[in-house]
Design a protein around this nucleic acid. Structure first.
Length: 886
DNA sequence: CACTTCACG
DNA sequence: ACGTACGTGAAGTGG
């Protein structure tokens, strides 16, 4: 088989890719704000063509600059072109990098266009017996087609092409490739700005060339041509036609410094591609490489380890005073995950085992429980819980790779050691997904070598990343956040998770059976009203019933169809009785599936408790989240749902549930960080803040004049400020017109000038430094603050306003939790902290300790930090979580 | 696995 | 003109 030569017209493909993806251009930017759509499109084209042609030699030709021999000869050549957009120019260097990393040669030649390079090499290819494929976005190159050279011209996108061979050109255009030049000479080319002969377009040009064979043939025989205006033009403009012919002719003898022998194609340089994709944020392509090559980017060099067993435990005593440790739990839920093995080591030696029970034996248990040993881990909280299951009390941790990574960049919230290591440019450890697989195929490898190597490399990664990450925390002024807040908090959270909260299954089941009955009634009523049975839980089917069959007005649409969300249904409620029933059905079915069935599934049979997991390294703001199950969204707003809380009871008779929550903590933080004197004055005076806000923005004499509706609106404005206000959002929320909402905001800013200054300044700060911070220097990067897209940029601006507020509130309660845990211990109280719900702490305690908690908990919470306004804490207690009373 | 909906702060 | 309130998790549907 003949050798294959691939020649790509770089500039024209990049242009095509850029304009093909122009409408989604803003979706394709990397973190640094670089546009990447054209690079992306180019990559798609490249993949496509490399699949079709397996080249032995390949080259991408680029234009060297604006001036070429053509512009020297003809000043107007390409003179009408618009300036290349900046969004495209910035991508060109990356396209070259992509080309080179993909194993193709890139070439340009001063004074020549890419076409000429391609023409010259195609000729060399023909002579050397190659089969050549030329890929371009420019039809002019079809003149290069021969029996051994095919010209693929992109159409519409960049991956679909039309392939021009001499035969196809004859059939489609009626001329040969060589004749195509002469056709162009007569008709001209407006995009390249050469005119051709007056009044001759493509049709005429083609028929003339067909008749006379060529431009030369035409002028040789022109005297015999019938007298006409056209003949006159042809004669008068012969010079132009000859010039245009010269311009249209692609050179096949450009003085290239390279030849076919220099452009052998040997496949991609994966490491370079990975670096490039990382810089460009091409996640899907990164994934492809990882999947195809099994993590080729990871250094696969072996690591030395020793397998521990009962007989060589003495090795443990030889470890130094600083050890990296990991109890391996393959399932995310470490309360239940199998304990697959462990690794412990000090950098000199890595000891591994599949037998987690060894950890309960003397030298290892002692090492883990000795406060004098410095232990470094990945996810201290998980290690604490896992070891607790073995009866080992991990005494404390120095470096937690997961926690440190999260603080350095709260948006990089992966939960996998390999992924995070790679994010810190460390490539000597694989991800769990790579080693263990995913989905149903996920399993601990049976092969000792594979499993132990992975464990040892994880431990080594913890060790290798310790110094650089500590250094970065220090540089960011985040060391106190790490050492004084997050690290101690991980132990507090572990303790809360292990303690769990008692849930009475019988109560839930009883509620469940009542709900099932009511659900069935509503279901029948809905079918009746609809006149047919359908799946009420399917928004799609429901949409058909409501908006097609019953012809109710469509208020809002989603990506996929009609919206049937609450706010829509509420607007339709008085038009058809079915809507009320659907709302009621939804409410009940939510309670049933999420809160009755859902919670019953996660009550542990041995202790009748639910043990949630708090995710400490997930949210971008610094809040916790709660999973398996989520105990931070147990119903409270509506009475029917609130009943669920009856099932949450103390774990011992004679005990009670106790809860304290911060009152308006986010607004107090707002008053503090903005320094707004009016808002601070209202808080210092102990006022009802929403009423006080209403009095100010509605210009009332006293708070007595505030109507409930005014207070409600003021409250919404306060929330809006915290969320990063917009008139649109506020208008939606309180159902007023957008100008009206705008008025509210202006009035608010006038009354609270410090707040206005803050929302302006924080966005500027985010733009200037690239991130915002909370009270404790928790950081959130906002690269999209520079986005050109209004939507994206606006999002980032609201995050800039909201994150310091929400995040500082999170800081405050975290500090309180650490102090609270300590206080309970110091005072020898039996009370236990069970739940954190963002601004609320829930405890259980013996009845006789409730009075103590009523003093202690608020005093610790309200003194967690010193703000310019007081923190206010309210407490309640009761027999169950439902029954809490002041 | 994406999408929609709805529970919480 | 653009077109959204901030931060989460779970369940169900349907491709």
């Amino acid at each position: 088989m003949a050798k294959q030569l691939l020649l790509i017209d770089g500039n024209s493909i990049v242009f095509r890719a850029f304009f093909a993806m122009h409408n989604q251009m803003e979706k394709f930017t990397n973190q640094a704000g670089l546009h990447t759509a054209a690079i992306y499109g180019f990559k798609l084209m490249l993949d496509h063509i490399l699949k079709e042609v397996q080249p032995d030699a390949a080259l991408v030709a680029f234009d060297a600059g604006k001036t070429t021999f053509r512009t020297e000869k003809y000043a107007d050549y390409k003179g009408s072109r618009d300036k290349t957009p900046g969004e495209l120019v910035e991508q060109l260097p990356y396209v070259r990098k992509l080309v080179e990393a993909s194993g193709l040669h890139a070439y340009e030649l001063v004074n020549y266009e890419a076409d000429d390079i391609i023409g010259t090499l195609a000729k060399e290819g023909d002579q050397a017996g190659f089969e050549t494929m030329i890929v371009t976005g420019d039809r002019d190159l079809t003149q290069l087609a021969t029996d051994h050279t095919t010209v693929a011209v992109t159409k519409r996108g960049v991956t679909q092409t039309e392939e021009f061979t001499p035969a196809y050109m004859q059939e489609k255009l009626g001329v040969t490739p060589r004749q195509y030049i002469d056709v162009k000479a007569l008709m001209g080319d407006s995009s390249d700005n050469y005119p051709g002969v007056t009044k001759i377009g493509e049709k005429t040009a083609v028929s003339l060339i067909q008749e006379y064979g060529s431009l030369d043939g035409l002028y040789e025989n022109i005297a015999a041509m019938k007298k006409s205006k056209r003949k006159e033009n042809l004669i008068n403009e012969e010079k132009i036609a000859r010039e245009c012919q010269d311009l249209a002719t692609i050179r096949r003898d450009a003085p290239l410094a390279i030849g076919l022998k220099d452009i052998a194609y040997q496949g991609p340089d994966e490491a370079a591609l990975i670096d490039l994709y990382q810089e460009l944020d091409f996640k899907s392509f990164l994934k492809e490489l990882g999947a195809q090559e099994g993590g080729a980017q990871v250094d696969q060099a072996p690591i030395e380890y020793q397998v521990l067993d009962e007989d060589n435990m003495a090795l443990v005593d030889q470890l130094g005073a600083t050890v990296c440790f990991q109890l391996e739990m393959p399932d995310a839920n470490y309360h239940e995950s199998p304990l697959a093995g462990f690794v412990i080591g000090d950098g000199k030696r890595w000891l591994v085992s599949r037998n987690a029970d060894l950890l309960t034996t003397a030298p290892l248990k002692k090492l883990l429980e000795d406060p004098a040993v410095e232990r470094d881990v990945f996810n201290a909280k998980a290690q604490l819980v896992g070891l607790h299951r073995l009866g080992v009390d991990l005494a404390g941790v120095d470096f937690d790779l997961l926690l440190a990574s999260y603080l350095l960049n709260t948006s990089e919230n992966a939960n996998d050691l390999g992924v995070l290591a790679a994010a810190h440019d460390y490539h000597q450890v694989q991800t769990d997904e790579e080693v263990y697989g995913k989905g149903a195929k996920r399993a601990i490898p049976a092969d000792d070598e594979v499993f132990f190597t992975h464990l040892a490399k994880k431990a080594r990664a913890i060790r290798d990343l310790k110094e650089p990450l500590y250094q970065q925390l220090t540089d960011n002024e985040q060391l106190p956040l790490y050492e004084d807040i997050e690290r101690p908090l991980s132990a507090v959270l572990a303790h809360m998770e292990i303690t769990g909260i008692h849930v009475d299954a019988a109560t839930l089941k009883e509620m469940g059976s009542k709900l099932v009955e009511r659900e069935a009634e509503l279901e029948q009523a809905i079918y009746q009203e609809a006149g047919e049975e359908f799946n009420i839980n399917s928004p799609k089917q429901l949409g058909v019933i409501l908006f097609e069959k019953m012809k109710l007005p469509v208020i809002k649409k989603t990506k996929t169809g009609y919206s049937t969300a609450v706010d829509v249904l509420e607007k339709l409620a008085d038009r058809a009785p079915i809507v009320q029933d659907i709302l009621a059905y939804r409410q009940i079915s939510k309670l049933q599936s999420t809160y009755i069935t859902g919670l019953l599934k996660v009550i542990h049979q041995d202790d009748q408790k639910i043990h949630t997991r708090y995710l400490q390294t997930l949210t971008a703001t610094g809040r916790l989240s709660s999973v398996d199950p989520n105990l931070q969204n147990i119903p409270v707003r509506l009475e029917e749902g609130r009943q669920i809380r009856r099932a949450f009871t103390p774990s011992a008779p004679g005990w009670k549930i106790f809860s304290s929550d911060y009152s308006q903590v986010e607004l107090r933080v707002l008053a503090h960080v903005t320094g707004d004197k009016n808002m601070q004055a209202d808080f210092l005076a102990g006022k009802d803040i929403h009423a006080a806000t209403a009095k100010r923005i509605f210009h009332l004499q006293s708070e007595d004049e505030v109507t409930p509706n005014m207070r409600r609106q003021a409250k919404a404005v306060n929330f809006g400020i915290v969320y990063g206000i917009s008139d649109y959002g506020l208008a939606q929320n309180i159902h007023v017109s957008r100008p009206q909402a705008h008025e509210f905001i202006q009035s608010y800013f006038k009354e609270f000038p410090g707040v206005e200054k803050y929302v302006h300044d924080i966005v500027e700060l985010a733009k200037q430094q690239g991130y915002v911070e909370t009270l404790t220097h928790r950081r959130r990067y906002l690269p999209e603050i520079h986005a050109k897209s209004f939507t994206q940029r606006s999002f980032a601006e609201r995050m800039a306003m909201n994150t310091p507020i929400q995040g500082s509130a999170a800081d405050i309660i975290k500090i309180a939790m650490i102090r609270m845990e300590k206080a309970l211990k110091e005072r020898g109280l039996r009370a236990r902290m069970l739940l954190q719900i963002h601004d609320e702490l829930v405890f259980e305690a013996p009845e006789e300790e409730i009075a103590i908690l009523e003093e202690l908990v608020p005093s610790i919470m309200d003194s967690a930090v010193k703000l310019d306004v007081p923190l206010k804490v309210e407490s309640k207690s009761g027999a169950t979580w439902y029954d809490l009373k002041k």
